[in-house]
């Protein structure tokens, strides 16, 4: 599904990603963890195609093809989705209006017929129920006046409606209380499937109690310093990140 090869990315001349290698297969859930400033969110944004970051080396292959030349919307149309750490508030456009535009843009790209208002409403109702999202929120401006939990749930709701092949969840758990976290996790779990891959970026191990990953990677200073199974998350919870960072330093020291 996704293959990241030696990915380097800059912003304003600072190198943030310093050679990431990662392979994610269909049906797999990968978690990317790491201390603050290690480049987790940058990786999520670069995957989604944010042009404020410049990819200086390496490649991203999605379904076997490089997507570096694709715009964020083209990547979305190909089936990629990014749930934002800080979902943007957009006064003046309702969620349902914008989401129908999005669904139809993607359908058009795939050569499917566009949905009319009735068909769209049917899908929206079904998915809102799945995520336990109050439908009232959909007729309000995008995320405007939403609580933190509602914003994150809206992200997962959009993911449910758009049905991506590769979903990247950027710190979806941050700022959520335990009840909101459970609802979001249930929503995500309901969307797990054999042909859908997920990358869950998180600072805390907490979320991984509810969304159990197949693989855990630890990002330190723009590189994956350590990879393992779901038990790695537990180890991190017990020991913190420092031991990995120290190991990484030692490794660098040996290498040089």
């Amino acid at each position: 599904m996704l293959e990241i090869r030696n990915l380097h990315a800059h912003i304003d001349g600072h190198e943030i990603l310093k050679g990431i290698n990662l392979t994610v297969g269909a049906g797999e859930v990968h978690s990317i963890m790491g201390p603050n400033g290690s480049g987790k969110s940058t990786l999520a944004q670069v995957l989604a195609g944010r042009d404020t970051y410049e990819v200086t080396q390496g490649d991203i292959l999605y379904k076997g093809k490089s997507i570096l030349a694709l715009s964020p919307d083209e990547r979305a149309c190909e089936g990629m989705f990014l749930a934002f750490q800080y979902p943007v508030e957009i006064p003046g456009v309702t969620t349902s209006y914008f989401l129908r535009a999005a669904v139809n843009a993607i359908r058009k790209h795939r050569g499917d017929e566009e949905l009319d208002a009735m068909d769209f409403l049917k899908i929206v109702k079904e998915k809102a129920k799945l995520i336990k999202l109050d439908q009232q929120l959909l007729s309000r401006a995008i995320n405007e006046g939403f609580s933190g939990g509602e914003k994150k749930r809206n992200e997962i709701f959009q993911m449910a409606v758009l049905e991506p092949y590769l979903a990247i969840l950027d710190e979806t758990d941050s700022g959520l209380d335990i009840d909101a976290l459970k609802i979001v996790a249930e929503g995500v779990n309901a969307l797990r499937s054999q042909d859908r891959a997920m990358i869950i970026v998180t600072h805390y191990q907490r979320l991984l109690h509810y969304i159990v990953p197949d693989f855990v990677h630890v990002l330190v200073d723009g590189k994956i310093a350590h990879s393992g199974g779901k038990e790695l998350a537990l180890e991190l919870e017990a020991k913190g990140y420092t031991w990995i960072a120290d190991d990484a330093d030692k490794a660098t020291a040996v290498a040089s």
């Binding site: 195609g49 944010r50 715009s71 964020p72 919307d73 990014l82 943007v88 989401l99 535009a101 999005a102």
Partner: peptide, 11 residues
């Protein structure tokens, strides 16, 4: 905001 909308498939 532009990036947000684009990641949803809107050109």
């Amino acid at each position: 905001e532009l990036f947000y909308l684009q990641t949803r498939g809107v050109n």
